[in-house]
């Protein structure tokens, strides 16, 4: 089942701590995730740590679900980084600033694996 949400991206402490260790598992755990309200997780049928496919007009990417009560049910939060940005596009109306927050997206539960950073970057080279 696909569910419409607003995609919010941004900094987190862990993403910052491992920002210069981009090939590490720690960075993968910090950035290739999606903070999501537990009710919404139930709704789309994903467990803690399970795969969530985030789909936008631009592309789709698989990240892992992390339950967070402080996130509203109408949005998901993905830390800034290769995974979040893979599905983002430019905003031609807004003087150079792409859309990094409040982006229309759909999410669904998936069995697909989260790509490692280097795997994800390879997709750009095709």
């Amino acid at each position: 089942m696909k569910r419409e949400v607003k995609l919010i991206t941004g900094r987190t402490l862990d993403q910052g701590i491992f920002i210069e260790h981009k090939h590490s598992d720690e960075y993968l755990n910090a950035a290739a995730i999606c903070r999501i309200n537990p009710k919404l997780m139930k709704e789309i049928g994903v467990d803690e740590g399970g795969g969530v496919k985030v789909i936008t007009d631009v592309a789709d990417v698989v990240v892992r679900a992390v339950g967070d009560d402080n996130i509203g049910e109408e949005m998901i939060f993905v830390p800034m980084g290769p995974w979040a940005n893979f599905v983002l596009g430019i905003d031609v109306g807004m003087a150079g600033m792409p859309s990094f927050k409040g982006v229309n997206a759909k999410i669904e539960s998936t069995d697909e694996k989260t790509p490692k950073m280097e795997e994800l970057m390879k997709r750009y080279m095709i």
Partner: peptide, 10 residues
């Protein structure tokens, strides 16, 4: 590469 949007990184 990590912080630009898809079309730019492409």
């Amino acid at each position: 590469g990590a912080h630009f949007v898809n079309s730019s990184v492409r």
